[in-house]
Amino acid sequence: MKPVTRFTTDTLDWEPYITPVDYDTATPAQREALQETPSHRKISKYTLTLAHDPESLKYRSPLFNQIMYGKDGLPRAERELAAVATSVVNHCIYCGSVHAARYIELTRRPEVMDAILTDGTKAEIDEYSQGLFDFAVALSKTPVAATQADINHVRDLGFTALQALDLVLASAIFGWANRLMHTLGQAVEPAES
C-alpha cells in the first residue's frame, strides 16, 4: 500500500493505523451505532474503526448526513466546496479526493477543483465560489480566523442566513471528519482489482 500525500481527484483507499472492529465479533452497542451507516453499502474500514467508540459514532453519522445531504438551504455542490476547502487546510488527502470528485460530478466544473487542489488555500476561482471558499478556509484555521467581513461578503453574494449557516456547518463537520481520517489512518493508492 503506497501512501498518497498530494491532493488528487483519483479514487483512493484509506488504511487505519489501528485495527478496525470486526463486525462479526462487535458488541451490541457497536452494532447499533453501525446501523446509522447506509445499510446498502459495505461498511467501510473507516466506519469500523470509528466503531471502537460507539457512543460518539451513533450521533456523528446522522449529524454528518443531515449536514451534507439535508434539504433546502445551501446547494449540495457548495457544501462539497466547503468540504474541500476545509480538507485543504487540514491536509486530509482522502476527504479532499472524495469531495472534489463529488463537486465535479455535481457541477461539471473540474477547473474549480484543479485550481484548489493545485494552489491550496491561495487558489483563485470565480467570485461566487471564492467568497464561500475563503470563508470556509478562514473558519477552518486554529484559532478560528473567519471575520465579520468574510460573512458580510457571503451575504453580499446573495446568500441567505440559512445558506450561510449551512456553509458554517459543512465546513465545521469537515473539521471533524478530517481530524479523524487524517489522524487515525492515511490515504493510500487503491489495491489492484
Binding site: T142, T147, L165, V168, L169, S171, G175, A177, R179
Partner: peptide
C-alpha cells in the same frame, strides 16, 4: 474532533 467542530459552529453562528 468534536470540540473543534463545536467551536467552529458556535463561532460561525455568532458571525452569521
Amino acid at each position: 474532533a468534536c470540540i473543534n467542530f463545536q467551536a467552529r459552529v458556535l463561532a460561525g453562528v455568532r458571525l452569521v
